[in-house]
Simulated scan of single mutants.
Amino acid sequence: MTAISTSAFYNQSIANMDKITQATQTLSQQLSTGNRLTHSYDDPIAAAQMRTMQAADTLSTADTANAASAKASLTLTDSTLSQFTDIITKIQTAATAAASDTANASDKANYGVQINAYYQQLVDLSNTKDSYGNYVFSGTSGGSPAYTQDASGNATYTGGASANAISLGGSLSVIPSVTGPEVMNFTTSGGVSGNLLTSVKTLADQLQAGTATSASMNASGGALDQLDAALNQVSSTQTVVGARTAWITTATTVQTTAQTARTSTEAAVGGTDYTTATAQLSQQMLALSASQASFAKLSSMSLFTYLN
């Protein structure tokens, strides 16, 4: 009977100290990691909430990456369109001079050579690549050139019919690029439809061949009219690109607001209450110290010595 009571005392005391030690370790871990939930069974409902929010955080990370990629693509597109504008303006200057009644055949031929060089620059710009090696104006065929040239130098659009939208989170999305035709195709004020590359190539060829006249170039729907319409088209496309870039900024703000709200909720649901945890840790450490002291004192009392 005495042996059983002594054994029970030891077992109970050790079990109690082990329980307090585990509680102390749990509180220490919560304070060091900032997480209240070590295991799902600590608080099943809170753990389920945390899993839902963590899944949302993972999607948010992907959406943020999409937004950054889309913004970079649109920024490159905008920069390229600005270069288009600069070159078209130079072509207009040369074309205006060539359309003057004072320009002779030799002058026009020289302007034709100059405009042909600008034409090649436009073709090169139309096949601009982004940092991933994709062609900016190829739409869904981003891995292939937007425009290809035949033996005579004529450029033909070989990209996709459209560009795909990418998710920015929730129901928000954006189209991160524009296709070649969206940039190049135009309609003059007189209703004449055309393509920038085709118009410039035709003008350069005609000037060099001596078939372009001042009257034809200045006529409604003529070369100068087409260049004006092409410039307006590029400008309009640049406005669209700017609007999409602004939309990404808005969507990113929405993402950031949602992320901040989740972070706050995660801290409330699964985060450590440092004030409470610190107080509890102090209490547990005092309890452990008292239990150890009590065990040492009782185990050395004369009754145990006597019983032994």
Rank of each mutant, 00 (worst) to 15 (best):
T275Q: 11
I175S: 10
A65W: 06
G210A: 09
M1H: 10
V269P: 01
S264M: 05
K71R: 11
N11S: 12
I87P: 00
I175F: 04
I166F: 09
L224Q: 07
S167N: 11
A109K: 15
D18E: 10
S32W: 04
Y147Q: 10
Y41K: 12
S141H: 13
G180K: 01
A47W: 05
T252R: 10
A65S: 15
T252Y: 05
A67L: 06
A268C: 04
N66Y: 10
T2H: 09
A267N: 15
D78V: 04
Y274N: 12
T61E: 12
K201A: 10
Q12Y: 09
S294R: 11
L227T: 06
A99C: 08
K19T: 11
L59V: 03
S162D: 12
Q120G: 08
A277V: 13
F9R: 04
S236M: 09
D63R: 01
T89N: 14
A155D: 07
Q22K: 12
G270Y: 00
D130W: 01
L125W: 06
T26A: 10
G271W: 02
L74G: 00
T179A: 07
A290P: 08
A277K: 02
T64C: 03
D130C: 08
L27N: 00
G143L: 10
T237V: 13
S167W: 02
K108C: 06
S302D: 08
A204W: 01
V178W: 01
F137W: 11
T21S: 10
M1C: 05
A267W: 03
Y157W: 07
L203Y: 04
A161E: 05
S216C: 06
D63N: 15
S144L: 08
Q12D: 13
Q30T: 02
I248A: 01
A151L: 10
A209V: 10
A243D: 13
S69Q: 12
N134P: 01
T202K: 10
S173I: 00
T89S: 14
Q120C: 04
G191L: 12
L59Y: 12
M50V: 15
S302W: 03
A105K: 11
P145S: 10
Q259Y: 12
Q280S: 14
N110F: 05
V113A: 13
D63H: 04
A212F: 11
V240C: 01
A8S: 11
G180I: 02
S100A: 09
T38G: 15
Q49T: 11
G142C: 09
S69P: 03
D124V: 11
A95G: 08
A15I: 05
S189H: 07
D225G: 08
T276G: 05
G112L: 01
Y132E: 14
G34D: 07
R36D: 05
M217Y: 02
Y111F: 13
Q149K: 14
A223C: 08
T305C: 02
G34W: 03
A163S: 14
T252E: 13
S131R: 06
I87T: 12
A48K: 09
S100Y: 09
T187Q: 14
L298M: 14
G242I: 03
R51F: 07
D18R: 12
N154T: 15
Y118P: 07
T253Q: 14
A94Q: 08
